[in-house]
């Protein structure tokens, strides 16, 4: 039996009467790459926010590596090994690319409250390594705020990897990137995941990316999981076609 890294049981969240997430249960196995797809407003980002503690679920439980994490604050969940990227790229705009990763590394190593040693030379090697891995090393000294969109996505990935996570949540990792870039970034992500034995859950609108990268695909519609299976099975699912891929207008 493969190890279950993340077990979600009956999670619900509503905003003013609207059920954004309406009883979602999922089990992610170690090392798998799972896509989470669905139309806009299906509840994907809300679901991510619940997993990472940025929102508190109304009901249900999230268990990560055998420990119940629902209700913990985001920083505590990150420390347990769940890392994420954001749909709207979120980086530290006035910090350099290198500093963006350094901050995450300093946090991971518990040194973010250190007062008297310069940060300039700390965690440089490890941070540069991460930047090299995502192909951003040449831009290490630029400010994150002036990076191109695609590069910001890469920077987000590097930041998310800084704590050697066991589970990586990527919210539309390739949105807004050119097709060639998209494939490359997802291939890179998959390679890193395999190498580190990482479990990945990602949302995505680009079906090429979804079907070429994911081991399994689950479909969220109006807050509920309506399909969960291999890419081929999900593609063939009538209900999925109707709500998402199909030719309805």
């Amino acid at each position: 039996m493969p190890e279950v890294v993340l077990a979600v049981d009956g999670v619900r969240k509503s905003f003013g009467g609207v059920h954004a997430v309406d009883g979602v249960s999922v089990a992610l196995e170690r090392g798998e790459i799972r896509a989470l797809i669905g139309p806009n407003g299906a509840g994907k980002s809300t679901f991510f926010d619940i997993l990472t503690g940025q929102l508190r679920a109304d009901a249900g439980a999230v268990v990560f590596r055998g420990e119940r994490i629902s209700g913990l604050p985001p920083h505590a969940i990150w420390r347990r090994g769940i890392s994420r990227t954001f749909q709207i790229t979120a980086t530290f705009g006035t910090l350099t690319v290198l500093e963006n990763v350094q901050v995450a590394r300093l946090s991971a190593t518990g040194r973010s409250l250190e007062l008297l040693r310069s940060a300039g030379h700390q965690e440089v090697g490890r941070s540069a390594e991460l930047l090299a891995q995502v192909g951003l090393l040449e831009q290490a000294d630029r400010l994150a705020g002036v990076l191109a969109y695609g590069d910001l996505k890469k920077l987000e990935l590097a930041i998310a990897l800084a704590n050697d996570p066991a589970l990586l949540l990527l919210d539309e990792p390739t949105a807004g990137m050119a097709p060639a870039e998209r494939g490359a970034l997802m291939a890179l992500t998959a390679a890193i995941a395999r190498e580190r034995d990482l479990t990945v859950l990602f949302t995505e609108h680009d079906m090429d990316v979804v079907f070429s990268t994911a081991d399994r695909v689950m479909v969220l519609h109006q807050g509920r999981v309506i399909a969960d299976g291999t890419p081929a099975a999900v593609r063939a699912d009538r209900q999925v076609q109707a709500v998402y891929l199909g030719d309805d207008l």
Binding site: Q54, F92, L95, Q102, V103, L106, S107
Partner: peptide
């Protein structure tokens, strides 16, 4: 120092900071 850098990060994007 790391503390100052972390404060600046939190100022730039508190949600991102929480998520690291």
């Amino acid at each position: 120092a790391p503390f100052g850098l972390t404060l600046r990060a939190a100022r730039d994007h508190a949600r991102r900071a929480e998520a690291v």
